[in-house]
Computed example of a mutant assay.
Amino acid sequence: MPAKIVMIGGGSGLPVIIKPLVKQEVDLTAIVTVADDGGSSGLLRDYVNIIPPGDIRNIMVAMSTADQELLALFQYRFQTKDDFLAKHAVGNLLIAALTEMTGDVSEAITRLAKYLKIKGQVYPVAKEPLILQAETTDGQKLSGEAAITAAHQALDHVWVSPSTKGQKITANPEAVDAILSADMIVYGPGSLFTSILPNIVVPGIKEALQATPAKQVYIANIMTQKGETDAYTDAEHLAVLNRHLGKKMIDAVLTNQSQVPADFVDYQRWGEISTQVKQDPKAIEKEGAEVVSRDFLLLRDAGAFHDGQKVADLIFSLLEG
């Protein structure tokens, strides 16, 4: 029986690791944040009252074995001059339409998964859209993922609130079951405060993560995020993650040891990144985790990214070990 891996996050980080992982003999599940309120996803969650579909769309494409022409259509984003449909991705509209047709986002994702022939499962962390809340290190309160990201301020902690006043926040039971039955939980890569932590702070998820017997692995970011994690070491990322988990839960940290060339990154193009994450292996060990330091760096498009194949190979070897 294939090992069960659950990946937790959102944004553009998870697909980089998922694409090579689905080629392995594993049972892969992605749990995705529902607090995104920017761009096409934000507009659809406001006008159609559904969970933001963008991260789900990207992960489904990463898991898909369908024809590339179909995937290109699914990912196609209308041009800004197309006033009514400006910036909407076709896949986002399909997720919204199927959610309305079926009355259930899980059923919508299941149907699309069949069309796209995906290898694995994609579960939103909750079935209703949530609002991400944050408190900065100087005590200021910020509301909404887009506003938090745009503020570029150092953050202390985050939590979620319902998008409808008085509504009870409940974790998606499919996500909880996946965590409890997993052999390995993988966090990231991705924005710590706006992609990873918004999943963990959903009531029911943290409790499942504390209860699961699975090995828990954190993929440390290669670059810090402007304002939010400026000058953070890999160990400081880990400490914030453990603090939101409620205890020292992470067994291993995958951290990049290769140097990003000083003149390679285009900081205007990649406006949310700041500096390279520095390694602090002793502090990671004090957090109770094993340090797994390798060359994970992939330089492309004037940016610094994880080499998905190298990370996936290592995750698979940790499973076997």
Score class of each variant (00 low, 15 high):
124 P>C: 04
64 S>R: 08
100 E>V: 06
91 G>I: 13
98 L>S: 04
112 L>W: 13
108 A>S: 07
65 T>N: 14
53 P>L: 08
115 Y>K: 02
74 F>Y: 15
119 K>A: 08
71 L>Q: 07
133 Q>V: 11
61 V>L: 09
71 L>D: 03
100 E>T: 09
60 M>L: 08
76 Y>N: 06
88 H>R: 01
131 I>Q: 11
135 E>C: 08
104 D>V: 15
97 A>I: 07
116 L>D: 06
87 K>Q: 13
70 L>W: 02
71 L>S: 07
123 Y>S: 03
103 G>N: 13
118 I>P: 00
108 A>C: 02
139 G>R: 02
127 K>F: 00
100 E>L: 14
76 Y>F: 10
68 Q>L: 04
73 L>G: 00
96 A>I: 13
72 A>P: 00
107 E>V: 14
94 L>K: 05
142 L>P: 07
125 V>F: 01
117 K>G: 01
96 A>S: 14
142 L>F: 06
142 L>S: 11
87 K>N: 14
87 K>G: 01
109 I>H: 04
131 I>L: 12
122 V>T: 11
67 D>T: 05
120 G>N: 03
64 S>P: 05
72 A>D: 03
82 D>W: 04
86 A>M: 08
68 Q>R: 14
120 G>P: 00
104 D>P: 02
75 Q>W: 01
97 A>V: 06
91 G>D: 13
61 V>F: 03
56 I>M: 13
73 L>S: 02
121 Q>A: 10
126 A>Q: 06
87 K>C: 07
92 N>G: 00
68 Q>N: 10
128 E>Y: 05
72 A>W: 03
101 M>Q: 12
85 L>A: 10
132 L>C: 10
140 Q>Y: 05
143 S>A: 12
99 T>V: 08
92 N>W: 02
